[in-house]
Nucleic acid binder design. Structure first.
Lengths: 342, 342
DNA sequence: CTGTTAGCGCCTTCAA
DNA sequence: TTGAAGGCGCTAACAG
């Protein structure tokens, strides 16, 4: 039903080729002809068919983004950066929520390949099991060999031989920094509420925590590490579990700010003051970190910038598959303090 | 560079048409042939070119979503619903952040039209000026006449004659309900921090507030209405302005939860306890509402459901342009209480 | 059941 | 400076 270039040509009394030339502007056309064509375009409200164009160029102007859940503020921040950078170059970003499910992730990859996405950006932690790794690497090679750039964002490369660019977050470093902060304040018994099992982000943040303990000679207490995911509920439940077990701790380090928010909530519900009785620290510096009271001490991760960087890598010179590691920064606010004396 | 159907056909030793039939499965093909074709598809890692297909069908499997900012939890919630519903029918949702700028909004509409989006969903408040209305109505007609369904989501139809389906939120109703809640608690001097000027949502929420005052005979105090936008900063600044002006109020009603969070913050910074000294209420029931302490009394808006509904309207029977109004519900939590005696 | 043909809307030679 | 012709990858007739 939409208007075609031929109709525009007819109306303007020129050939289709001429219309095309006016539209693309990369070819000399007489001023008067150009005027007539542009008028016809306006009158008919014509817009080029992106598909027909994509068919010729075998490029679509589409950037695929696959992430767990775009309504999660972590992903939302990165997606925002991607979308902005993509829009600046007239590209459309297609956001796909995989719900963290590899099946869905692959299904979206397939769909995006069908749409001949110019690039696909995979955002967020990846599963760590071997099966996934093999499959993912194979997929990655498939995309690349079919002309779609692949960028991993917030996850490490699946293996040495896996192609594609990578924007990594210094999770271990940030986690170590915030752990040291707690230790410097005088905390020795620090509880840790983890992210979801078997994801790269969970592992590296936990590793940073442990590294900082080791490095400063603070003895790790296995019972103080409780499992969670990246949700507020996990933080709440984690603290409740610690409390129910009569665990002794003066600080809680959470896998992210959402978890920290839940932890603060549970602590308050149990009558513990934050930070007077227990310090709480988060990760990611999500917008919510300053809604929580007391405002969360956390690790800042430049989400939007990470998204923009991913787009740059996707469309920059692709001579080598670059790996960029984004630094993180400790942000001290109100939720951490020295432990109560005694 | 990607593999084409012809190559698959060559490898399988059949004609392109046969491959097409196997792929689409809507035509009888001998089992043995099918096997051979499928094997070739696998070996070559072939995926149909969605553009070539779209060219034939003049349908693209793309749902365009235009909103202010996908990282804003309000939009994120709706977008999530849209994305889920779209994915269930193998459609790709394309999210475009217009930053609330009509220019950008129109630019995206254009882009999406170029991609022959099957439907476009416009999410969030619309500007109220006449110029925009005219332009928007014209655009809407353009899309429709070119075969793209249009759904407005969280904004009223631009005019009687404007085509397209609409999912409206009962903003005035929810606002009135929460205002009545405050009045019933005993509040008479209620401050109101508005959303951004000249947007439909701002207007209708404010209207609901005023209607409830009128209906219950509480005298409105113009000085207690301060302007804001939908951000935390606005809430903070709004309260600071009220305080600086020595305004007397026992409750603050905010245009949304983000604003309410900022208001709580500013009140606490000024030494006022919430809800003991001042009650605070928000709107939208965003995830953050329960991170704020005290947990926010607010109006629940079923964001994800609204998104799903928009998709249903987009692809449902289009005989008539339906208008659905989504009800809202008061959620009483901890941030509101009776005013201090005296 | 399978192959051949034509054409979706556009752009890019090649000629004029 | 402009027009005519062919083809991008796929599918829907139409034959066989």
């Amino acid at each position: 039903m939409p208007v075609t270039l031929v109709e525009v040509a007819a109306r303007a009394g020129v050939s289709p080729a001429t219309v095309s030339r006016v539209l693309n502007g990369n070819y000399p056309v007489a001023e008067s002809t150009r005027q007539r064509v542009q008028e016809a375009v306006r009158e008919l409200d014509y817009v080029v068919n992106a598909h027909a164009r994509a068919l010729l160029h075998s490029t679509s102007g589409i950037v695929g983004v696959v992430l767990n859940d775009a309504s999660d503020p972590f992903f939302a921040g990165i997606a925002r950066g991607i979308q902005g950078a993509a829009a600046e170059t007239s590209r459309l970003s297609v956001i796909c929520n995989s719900e963290g499910d590899p099946e869905q992730e692959f299904a979206f990859l397939e769909l995006l390949r069908g749409h001949r996405a110019d690039a696909v950006i995979l955002v967020g932690a990846a599963p760590e099991d071997a099966e996934y790794l093999v499959e993912a690497t194979a997929r990655a090679k498939g995309m690349l060999s079919h002309g779609t750039r692949l960028v991993l964002c917030g996850r490490p490369a699946p293996g040495e031989d896996a192609p594609g660019a990578v924007v990594e977050i210094d999770n271990a470093g940030g986690s170590a920094a915030i752990t040291r902060h707690l230790i410097e304040l005088g905390h020795r018994r620090i509880a840790y509420i983890t992210g979801p099992d078997g994801r790269t982000t969970t592992t590296s943040r936990l590793a940073g925590f442990r590294a900082a303990l080791a490095e400063t000679g603070v003895e790790p207490v296995p019972d103080l590490v409780v499992h969670g995911d990246f949700s507020r509920q996990a933080g709440h439940a984690g603290v409740e579990r610690l409390l129910a077990a009569d665990a002794e701790f003066t600080a809680v380090l959470a896998a992210n700010d959402l978890v920290a928010a839940g932890a603060v909530h549970a602590l308050r519900a149990a009558g513990r003051r934050v930070p007077d009785d227990v310090s709480v620290a988060g990760y990611d510096d999500l917008p919510t970190a300053v809604d929580v009271w007391p405002n969360l001490t956390t690790v800042h991760v430049p989400l939007e910038e990470i998204g923009r960087m991913a787009v740059e890598l996707a469309f920059g010179p692709s001579d080598q598959d670059s790996v960029v590691t984004v630094p993180t920064a400790l942000v001290v606010r109100e939720s951490t303090a020295a432990p109560a004396a005694g």
